[in-house]
């Protein structure tokens, strides 16, 4: 009973929040709605027993991706007024696409009602090991059978890191504004001051 209630609560909020992501006029609000959608999707994952996926959704999407989205939104110079003008101009086309999608969804749902969905049974290696929790099962497959793909995923992360640096990092090592703490601490009075004893009537030659 409580599961059913929780399912409908999470599912409704996911859909509403997803709709609001598109409808919100302020991009920052869209991001906030997106976070809500992710959070409730994590709730749905808990309901189907995929706790690890739920944790990932919260950690990766809600945390990191939302931060990143906010940054991107902040960094882009979006002129809301001109965007709205484009919205009005493209609205008929948008409605046409939406109608097509709606028709497809209705058709798909009809096909579903007709009983056309016969899901495959998972192949033997991907069936759950008895007596292990969800997260242990994920680990048992990911780090043995798919260990090679796991390493390649590491390479993808590395490429993403290189990309961010290549595209955004500006080398400031030459500039005067840079603080080199070791140099700062290692500085001695001798390096900075000169003692002179000028004669009366003569200036100091620097």
């Amino acid at each position: 009973m409580i599961q059913l209630f929780a399912f409908y609560m999470f599912a409704t909020i996911v859909i509403l929040a997803a709709v609001m992501v598109i409808l919100a006029r302020n991009p920052v609000h869209s991001v906030l709605w997106l976070i809500l959608a992710f959070f409730n999707a994590a709730g749905l994952m808990v309901l189907v027993g995929a706790e690890f996926v739920a944790v990932l959704l919260v950690i990766v999407y809600v945390g990191a991706v939302a931060v990143l989205f906010l940054f991107v939104v902040m960094m882009l110079d979006i002129d809301v007024a001109s965007m709205r003008a484009g919205f009005v101009r493209n609205a008929p086309l948008g409605f046409a696409v939406a109608l097509v999608l709606l028709a497809e969804m209705v058709l798909g749902f009809g096909a579903y009602r007709a009983g056309g969905l016969a899901l495959g049974t998972p192949a033997a290696p991907s069936q759950a090991l008895p007596g292990l929790s969800n997260i242990q099962n994920v680990g048992a497959l990911l780090y043995t059978r798919y260990v090679f793909l796991f390493e390649m995923a590491g390479l993808i992360l590395l490429v993403a890191m290189i990309g961010a640096i290549v595209l955004t990092h500006r080398d400031r090592r030459g500039s005067a504004a840079r603080q080199d703490i070791a140099r700062q601490i290692g500085r001695k009075p001798v390096d900075a001051t000169v003692m002179t004893r000028p004669k009366v009537g003569e200036g100091v030659e620097l």
């Binding site: 793909l149 390649m152 995923a153 993808i156 490429v159 990309g163 595209l167």
Partner: peptide, 19 residues
């Protein structure tokens, strides 16, 4: 899965190369 990982590794570096 290999297909997807390979595709992403290649695409991601392509995006960076393009800019």
């Amino acid at each position: 899965m290999t297909l997807y990982i390979g595709l992403e590794l290649s695409s991601l570096s392509s995006y960076i190369l393009a800019s």
